[in-house]
Each structure stands twice: as C-alpha cells, then as structure tokens.
Amino acid sequence: MVRSVDTGRIEWGGVKEQLGFDFGVQQPQRLTKVSPARLATFEDCPRRYRMTYLERPTPQRTGPWAHSTLGAVVHNALRALFDLPVAKRTPQRAVALVAEQWKDAGFADQEQAARYRARAKGWVAEYVEDHDVTDDPIGLERWVSAPVSTEEGGGRPTMIIEGRADRIDQRGGELVIVDYKTGRREPDEYEARASQALAMYAVAASRTLRMPCTKVELHHLPTGTVAAAEHTGESLRRHLERAGQTAGDLRLATDTLDAGGDGDVLFPARPDRRCAWCDFRPSCEVGQQTAAAAQPWELLAP
C-alpha cells in the first residue's frame, strides 16, 4: 500500500466542529512516499503494481528467475567485498565470495548454473583488478530518504523519495551513485542520465548525507563498462517532476480503490512482450494471452 504521512496534524477532538468556530487552520499536504521500484512498476503495468503492493494475500507468482539470482549473487558478493578490510579486497577473495553467495535458483540445470557461476567469478575478479577498491564507500546498500518539491525553485515538499542505492562513493567532496548491472545489454551514458532511479538516489543521498551529488554511474560487470552521467539541477528537477506526476496518479488510484473503486479499472493491465516474464503471469489472464511464457533462464546475459 502506498504510505502517506500527515506532518504536523493537530487533532482537536471535534471541538472546532462542535462549537462552529473556524480557526483558519489549513491541513498540511499529504506526502506520498515513493521509491524507484514502485514508480517503475506502476508505469510499466498498474495491475502488476496492485498485485505486488496492494493485494493481500499476494497473488500467485512464478518461480525464481536465473537472471535475478545471478544479479543478486554479484551484488551480494561486491557488498561483502567492500565490508572487508582493504588488504583483503583481492580478486581471489571476490571469487570466493561469489562461491559463498551462490544459488542455483532459476537455472535450467546444474551444468548451466555452473557455467554462470564461473562467469560471475570472472566478472568480479576482473572488476577488482580494473577498479580501485581501496576507498571505503560512504554507503553500501544504503537506504536514503528525503522530502522533495517538484516545483521549480523549490517550495513545500510534495512527496518523499526513498530507496536503497547499491553503492555511494565520496570523491573529491561530492557523492557518486554507483549501480551494478549484470544484464544482457551494455549501458551507455544516455541510459545512466535517463535513469529515474539513479536521479532519485542522487537527490535523496544529497539530502540525507548533506553533500552534493550529481554524478551517477552504471557498472556493467559482464563487459567491464562504466556508463557515467553528470546531472544538473535542471535535469534532476525534470526527473522529480516525472516522479511527482506518477506519484500523483498512483496515489489517486490507491485512494479511489480504498474508497471502493474498481481495481481492474483503476489498475489496468498494460500488456506487452514483458508479460512473458512477469512475476504475476500465473495470476493474470491478460498476460497469459499476450505472450508465451518465457523460460526462467531466457534473460541471462549471453
């Protein structure tokens, strides 16, 4: 459920209404808490959002996906690596951490799992060899949250953005958001700049840690690519405006649903090719009719 916060509300126990006085007290604007994952899910498919965050009990899901397992293993291994003393952040230790974190969930068979385990070991070993890992990040899987305004020039907060960044570095007195990628496509500067998630992390990190943050990076482990982008105040504001628009639509749909509205109308399915690998495909007839089911290992990087 979308969570909302009423800040500074004073309950008068009904005195105002009972006595008929109007003290001119304005109720503060409700701030909707949003994360990049929630916003992206709602934009991609409102029905999937409803199934993920609102329906209880949660509708039936598919089983695990191999690409998600692979990504989680690499993320967890790199986080564990940076938790170690600098002297122990070696390629050999990175390889061992992949082995410790490994799971076979979603892979076609043991042979395929073994191939990708070996690839993941190679990725993290090369990452440690090619990057300076001697500096301690200021945040690892760090949760950041901040009230923001979507109005030009600032103003009263209109929503609270929050999320968990893979890594937050401090370089030259400024923060840098680092996001690890293990997918099939090699990212570029445009993708880094267009990422609403990275922009929201940058704004929230800057407010939470009280340091400038305009640079964001996508670190693609399979190719060793680092796609970096430098935001301006204007580009960050555009991302916040888009997030604010989606948050408003999301809040209206949720409030109307709570008031008895029709969930299928308020949170319609948005069918496309992604229905093939949607987690809620078993519970969505529209998705089943849109695309044939993908195999759990089809989205692995080649």
Rank of each mutant, 00 (worst) to 15 (best):
residue 185 R to E: 11
residue 243 A to S: 10
residue 241 E to R: 13
residue 226 V to F: 04
residue 256 T to Y: 01
residue 268 P to C: 09
residue 210 R to I: 13
residue 202 A to D: 01
residue 225 T to H: 00
residue 184 R to D: 13
residue 289 Q to H: 12
residue 286 V to N: 04
residue 215 K to M: 12
residue 252 L to C: 12
residue 187 P to F: 11
residue 256 T to A: 08
residue 235 S to H: 01
residue 269 A to M: 11
residue 179 D to M: 07
residue 246 T to G: 10
residue 249 D to L: 15
residue 273 R to S: 15
residue 209 L to Y: 02
residue 288 Q to Y: 10
residue 229 A to W: 08
residue 182 T to P: 07
residue 196 Q to R: 15
residue 259 A to G: 04
residue 270 R to C: 10
residue 188 D to K: 07
residue 275 C to L: 02
residue 225 T to A: 04
residue 227 A to Y: 03
residue 250 L to H: 06
residue 243 A to V: 09
residue 282 P to G: 11
residue 221 L to H: 14
residue 183 G to W: 07
residue 225 T to S: 00
residue 223 T to L: 01
residue 209 L to K: 04
residue 290 T to A: 13
residue 207 R to P: 03
residue 266 L to A: 04
residue 280 F to T: 10
residue 272 D to T: 08
residue 265 V to R: 12
residue 272 D to Q: 04
residue 272 D to F: 09
residue 237 R to C: 10
residue 240 L to G: 06
residue 218 L to T: 02
residue 201 Y to M: 01
residue 208 T to H: 03
residue 203 V to M: 03
residue 297 W to L: 02
residue 197 A to P: 04
residue 179 D to S: 05
residue 208 T to C: 05
residue 239 H to I: 11
residue 189 E to C: 08
residue 231 H to D: 02
residue 218 L to W: 03
residue 186 E to G: 00
residue 242 R to K: 14
residue 218 L to P: 00
residue 208 T to K: 05
residue 197 A to S: 13
residue 181 K to Y: 07
residue 198 L to K: 03
residue 254 T to P: 10
residue 273 R to H: 15
residue 233 G to V: 07
residue 221 L to V: 09
residue 251 R to Y: 14
residue 297 W to Q: 04
residue 209 L to I: 06
residue 231 H to Y: 05
residue 261 G to T: 02
residue 181 K to A: 05
residue 254 T to G: 13
residue 295 Q to A: 15
residue 274 R to Y: 11
residue 236 L to D: 01
residue 260 G to W: 02
residue 196 Q to N: 13
residue 243 A to L: 07
residue 187 P to K: 12
residue 191 E to Q: 15
residue 281 R to F: 02
residue 190 Y to G: 14
residue 254 T to W: 15
residue 251 R to D: 14
residue 219 H to M: 12
residue 226 V to S: 10
residue 205 A to Y: 00
residue 257 L to F: 14
residue 272 D to C: 05
residue 200 M to I: 12
residue 257 L to W: 14
residue 257 L to Y: 14
residue 211 M to P: 07
residue 257 L to N: 12
residue 271 P to H: 06
residue 294 A to M: 10
residue 253 A to F: 02
residue 278 C to Q: 00
residue 296 P to E: 06
residue 279 D to V: 12
residue 271 P to I: 06
residue 224 G to P: 00
residue 260 G to E: 03
residue 206 S to L: 01
residue 294 A to Y: 08
residue 267 F to Y: 10
residue 210 R to G: 12
residue 207 R to W: 09
residue 180 Y to M: 12
residue 264 D to H: 14
residue 256 T to N: 06
residue 283 S to D: 11
residue 265 V to A: 13
residue 187 P to Y: 09
residue 195 S to L: 07
residue 263 G to D: 13
residue 266 L to K: 00
residue 268 P to E: 10
residue 285 E to D: 09
residue 275 C to T: 06
residue 289 Q to F: 08
